[in-house]
């Protein structure tokens, strides 16, 4: 009898240790951060970490409709920078992003936002044609057009993606192929090289992890 009790006790202990060790995977926060004193609901002061967030934006989408950050309210989204006449990394990026788009097509909490960096040629109707030919329809994946200044600043300062005009490059522009994952509070939670299959796979796995954070 004593033996059984001892055995039970040890297994219970073992189980509790294992469960205690099992931590849920959480995505990191990217960018600048600082500590700030905030008041909680009860009015008590406490120190909290404030992370870098994506500021308000407003652009024309592929339907020539003014689209703002409000479109992404309450959603997590994947952002990237491309241009339609790009023949180098963009086709690969969007081929890979398409697979994620198709995976989360029915999930209303996930969105996709592609900014063109070709402010001269990629007007909304060009973006529309591109989206249709890629096989994208509807507001879930927004293709956004804006002035050079607004898009380039947003890319470099806020999404931390390098973009630029370069007359020596084959298609006239250079940019990084990152797919940037943004959470519902507009914080950067991941950046994945859209041209590398393994990193795109990782993004596919990380989206549910990020969604799970908001389920509690």
């Amino acid at each position: 009898m004593n033996k059984i009790t001892a055995y039970l006790a040890t297994s219970l202990l073992a189980i509790s240790i294992f469960t205690a060790c099992k931590q849920e995977r959480k995505l990191p926060f990217y960018g600048e951060r600082h500590a700030e004193t905030v008041k909680d609901a009860a009015g008590a002061e406490k120190i909290d970490t404030v992370y870098q967030t994506i500021p308000d934006w407003s652009f024309l989408n592929q339907d020539s409709v003014v689209t703002t950050n409000k479109a992404t309210d309450g959603k997590i989204y994947v952002a990237d920078f491309f241009f339609t006449s790009c023949t180098t990394i963009c086709p690969t990026m969007h081929r890979n992003l398409m697979t994620i788009y198709n995976d989360f097509k029915t999930n209303p909490d996930v969105m996709f936002v592609s900014h063109t960096i070709d402010f001269k040629y990629d007007k909304p109707h060009v973006l529309k044609k591109y989206a249709q030919k890629l096989g994208v329809d509807g507001p879930k994946w927004q293709f956004l057009y804006g002035t050079k200044d607004s898009v380039y600043t947003l890319a470099e300062k806020n999404y931390l993606v390098a973009v630029g005009e370069d007359s020596t490059a084959k298609d006239g522009y250079i940019h990084q192929g990152y797919l940037v994952l943004i959470d519902k509070d507009r914080r950067i939670r991941g950046a994945y090289d859209g041209t590398k299959e393994d990193q795109v796979e990782q993004l596919k796995k990380d989206i549910p992890v990020l969604l799970a954070e908001y389920k509690k």
Partner: peptide, 16 residues
């Protein structure tokens, strides 16, 4: 060629 025409020559939507 692969970035547009794909690893298995499958193309890309109506683009390639």
């Amino acid at each position: 060629c692969q970035n547009c025409h794909g690893e298995n020559g499958e193309g890309l939507g109506q683009l390639a």
